[in-house]
């Protein structure tokens, strides 16, 4: 019967700026790898099916859904989670803008939102509200009604003109 021993391999990639080597199954969900094997819990699971964006991470600068990625896809890639954007002591301007603009309520969507924002602002340093709404439209938030999140993204754009992550 099942519970087969799943073959593992050594996965090497860059995580939040530093090299990582980890023994894992190539088919392991990236979300589980990050949260359970590597202890990075900023990426959250809200649906496991691509619908909520809470699990978003940056892979080579593009925001992707870690619930729909397999470990093997990370080989050699550069991965950034919300933990890698900034810390409580030294938050990323986007994270600071979310806090200052009241864009965080339960906060469960926030790491994913900030990741989507990071990629967006890197390409669109001076957006309007409509563009921001479009950019975060893959990240559901049930608490805020999005207004403050849009405010925060615009404020972050102002705070770091032209800066990319």
């Amino acid at each position: 019967m099942s519970g087969k021993i799943v073959p593992t391999f050594t996965l090497a990639f860059t995580l939040n700026g530093g090299p990582v080597r980890v023994e894992t199954s190539p088919g392991r969900r990236v979300l589980d790898l990050l949260r359970e094997d590597l202890g990075l819990t900023a990426a959250k699971e809200g649906c496991g099916s691509g619908e909520c964006g809470a699990c978003a991470i940056l892979v080579d600068g593009a925001a992707k859904l870690s619930c729909l990625m397999l470990a093997v896809q990370l080989e050699g890639r550069e991965v950034v989670t919300a933990e890698g954007l900034g810390t409580a002591e030294n938050p990323h301007p986007i994270q600071a803008a979310f806090v200052e603009n009241g864009a965080v309520q339960c906060g469960y969507c926030t790491p994913g939102m900030t990741i989507a924002t990071a990629e967006f602002l890197a390409h669109t340093p001076d957006p309007d509200r409509g563009q921001v709404r479009e950019a975060i439209s893959g990240n559901l938030c049930r608490c805020t009604g999005y207004v403050k999140i849009v405010d925060a993204v615009l404020a972050a754009a102002k705070a770091a003109p032209g800066e990319s992550s």
């Binding site: 593009a62 859904l65 729909l68 989507a116 967006f120 950019a135």
Partner: peptide, 9 residues
């Protein structure tokens, strides 16, 4: 199509 995240993948 989908969302920016879906379009990235």
């Amino acid at each position: 199509l989908g969302s920016p995240l879906i379009r990235n993948m």
